[in-house]
Simulated scan of single mutants.
Amino acid sequence: MLAFNLRYALLLTSLVFIPVVHASSFDCASAVSKTEKTICSDSYISDLDKKLGALWRPTLAKVADPKALKADQRGWLKNRNQCAEDVPCLRREYLMRLKALEYMVKPFSWDATWQIIPWGVSSGATLQTKRIDADHISFDISAVAGANSGDMDGIATIVGTEAHYSGTGCTLKFSAFNGLLDVTQDGSDPTCGGGMGVYYGGRYVASEQSQSIDYDLLSLGVARTQQEDELLHALLKDDYQTLLQNSGSMASGDASSDIPNAQVDEFWLRGLANSNAGILMRAPEGKLWLVLLVFDDQRESRARYYTNVPEWKKRVPNALLAWHKRIADDQTLPLDLMP
């Protein structure tokens, strides 16, 4: 009986150390690269990989140029593998790839309205192209990045499956690809008529409706782990979406003198750094502190303080207080202590 109990205990101990491996489009047992191991260890990315695997062959069979799609897939895999162990990077790569594959089977036409596949929640672009004659198209493009925007129009010359536009300090290349349109921009944002951070380059799908992708805070890199994303969901409730919309840009902030080993990130919506912003501080064991700027019913700015640490519910860490004072800039900015 003692020997049996010992064997049973050893079996349970060994099970504790078996890594969690999720299903994917490839055999996780033979995963070698950092990227493959990360995919297999993350259930969400594994599901995305399975969806891509299921969509790949039917798409390949229906597109106008299968050879071009295979080359494009090799390029995408190279970009994906550069993510290595970066979970947010992998999530974005898969979500954007799935969106592209949805539209590749559509027939291509220069007479169309196009929507960019967005890399985040606060970016987007709409492009209209129209064939003028055998050698030229007209284009009209508008884009946003946070609160900044840009517009541009002109005439591009068709060369094979591409169309080229050259202006003063700004060139655009429109490349037709299996029902999609890739836009390459050479020129700075202001030179091409855009506000700061506004670029027209990217992959566009033929659609009258703007495209959205189901990004979350982990996909955008605000949350660093699945557990942290879930903690922020539970803590912020409706304001989770507010944080998602306002986290267009991020930068590391100063540490808080009253909380050892804490890390601080500041974030803002591009172009509205003083009216849509927040600061997030994290410490070991899933401890979180957050101040988020919101608009009240009168469209006045106010700050909301959240934490999942009970002893900090009624007081705000020094780093967050300093940030609030700096953002307020000697103006009245109410700070609400959230439950």
Rank of each mutant, 00 (worst) to 15 (best):
D254Y: 04
N81T: 02
Q241H: 02
S142A: 08
S30Q: 05
S30M: 07
S14Q: 12
P118L: 14
R97P: 08
L272D: 11
A64L: 01
L10Q: 12
A176M: 05
P88W: 01
S123A: 06
D47T: 02
Q209V: 14
G160M: 10
E102V: 04
Y44M: 03
V316C: 15
R282L: 12
L77V: 13
P260K: 13
L95W: 03
A328Q: 06
L288M: 12
I259P: 10
S25G: 11
A134M: 02
S14Y: 06
L127W: 07
T113R: 10
R304H: 08
A223K: 09
L293M: 15
Y165M: 10
R270T: 10
M250N: 04
G253E: 04
L292V: 09
T113E: 12
K287S: 12
S30N: 09
R315N: 08
W268P: 04
L293H: 04
L218T: 03
V159R: 05
S210E: 13
S275F: 01
A206C: 10
A143H: 04
P118Y: 13
D42C: 00
L2A: 12
G271A: 12
I155V: 15
S175I: 08
R97M: 09
A251P: 00
Y199S: 14
L127T: 03
F267R: 04
Q227C: 03
E208Y: 08
V105K: 15
Q128Y: 03
V198C: 12
I45C: 00
F174R: 07
D86K: 00
L272G: 09
K99I: 07
D27P: 03
N148I: 05
A273D: 14
C192L: 09
S138I: 02
R92V: 09
P88Y: 05
L48P: 00
